[in-house]
Design a protein around this nucleic acid. Structure first.
Lengths: 258, 258
DNA sequence: AACGAATGGTGCGCTTTCCGACCATTACAT
DNA sequence: ATGTAATGGTCGGAAAGCGCACCATTCGTT
């Protein structure tokens, strides 16, 4: 076992918790997950167009080949379609496939396909929910702390209205969009990917339980409380509203999956 | 520019904020940073021994070659020494080198060395401080929420005492250790690397400003408040104590670097 | 109808990383 | 002394990823 040395008396600590893989696996799967995030979290909606391959590869710091492999996997899974020629590009399909996709090595040719995710442990559920609470509540509080420009206030209100007006099938995506916008308004670029990631994990859990119409109505009311608190600049109120909002789906998830 | 599609009216959103490189650079530099974290954050103290190369490579999900390159770079920089033979291994040196190390391509042979970090932008400072506030305050609150075992309470108290008793030169490391232990006590494995990372970033900033003895005394008093609040199970008190603690170094950093 | 620009599609060589096997060294056990 | 187990050190082939150049297709413009 790891020995933390003798200079200080403190016993062996959490060294193992830091010595873990950084990147999930390889550049290819990493890229697939990234693109899946932008699609499933609604940052690029149905019918929307992805940046050109060369530009996108540059954004993600991967080679164009790797990016094309990832796009190919997403195309096979039915998430995107590519058209070439001028004003062509890669587009998100109108109706997204259902189910929770994850990667598996392809059976032939060296490419890969998307398959169902196997299972989820109670520990992973708890991990996700706790982390989500910390990040989202903290983001709401910080968003209400800083000054917001007129444009930002407008965008926030617009996202709230979209979320209320959207149909049930669009709800998950529009909801993610609103939460992600709040994270963006905090003004800490590092925060956005973290919340995006934890929301992806949360959505995977939510996909396993039924969607109840009454919950949507309730969520929309809470969204309004959150947005109002942020716009008024009340950090504690925003944090509390977000906490209650989070607690709702936490109870749901613990009830169905715990 | 990215078009988010026409199905919903919401304008183009933060797509760019998600489409960014995942891993910092390559496996080698990633590994160096990881090892540097465990050393500089005090998870493995001076004189401490790293896990065997084969095991460590497995932990970090990199090949043994890459790991050895990273260890070699750290050895060149004076952080570790390797001894071979039975009961040998790679050990952290007794006196850590000073300065803020970062990677640069080696001049010969394909290896690399550690050099000084160039600069830091105000935006990056703000990003780090905001993220730190969210994570550390949230962690303190959550740590005070859950039940703690006797062993955990003991470790927490021990870390607090170590921190108070440590000399000025050890303070940064022992301080990080205490904060990281709090994160560990939350029980959300995903949280620990996040706090470790934001602490590394914070420490890099703190290394640029003078260390004042009075601040250490003050910090230790605040540490005691935080730990007591956690042990007593008062989430709001723990959060507030942590917030005040954070605010201290925030003011310091903004004053010197802002 | 012809041209040009933007885009996806394809092929090739180079570097990095990975994987497995084997060698060299050391300290403890016998 | 001898043996053995655990460790760092070294080598060679395989795979993944990268960077670049070039091809093929489709649109708008002229």
């Amino acid at each position: 076992m790891t020995d933390t040395g003798g200079t200080d008396a403190a016993g062996d600590l959490s060294a193992d918790l830091l010595l873990r893989p950084g990147k999930v696996v390889n550049a290819f799967e990493e890229t697939v997950q990234r693109l899946l995030q932008t699609i499933r979290l609604g940052l690029i909606g149905p019918g929307g167009r992805l940046p050109a391959e060369r530009e996108l590869a540059s954004m993600l710091s991967v080679s164009r080949d790797t990016l094309r492999d990832a796009i190919g996997a997403l195309a096979d899974a039915g998430y995107v379609v590519s058209r070439r020629g001028r004003y062509g590009g890669t587009f998100v399909v109108d109706e997204l496939p259902t189910g929770t996709p994850v990667m598996r090595a392809g059976s032939a040719g060296g490419s890969a396909v998307l398959v169902e995710r196997p299972a989820v442990t109670p520990a992973e559920i708890e991990d996700t929910l706790v982390l989500r609470s910390i990040l989202e509540v903290g983001a709401a509080r910080q968003a209400a702390t800083g000054e917001l420009s007129g444009i930002e206030r407008e965008r926030l209100w617009q996202a709230l209205e979209d979320c209320s007006a959207g149909s049930a099938e669009d709800y998950r995506r529009l909801d993610s969009r609103l939460h992600l916008l709040i994270a963006e308004l905090v003004g800490s670029p590092s925060l956005v990917p973290l919340i995006a990631d934890v929301r992806m994990r949360t959505n995977e859990l939510l996909d396993r339980i039924p969607l109840i119409a009454a919950n949507i109505v309730h969520s929309n009311e809470q969204h309004e409380d959150i947005v109002k608190a942020i716009l008024r600049g009340h950090p504690d109120a925003a944090a509390q509203a977000m906490e209650e909002h989070i607690a709702g789906s936490e109870a749901l998830l613990r009830g169905f999956l715990g």
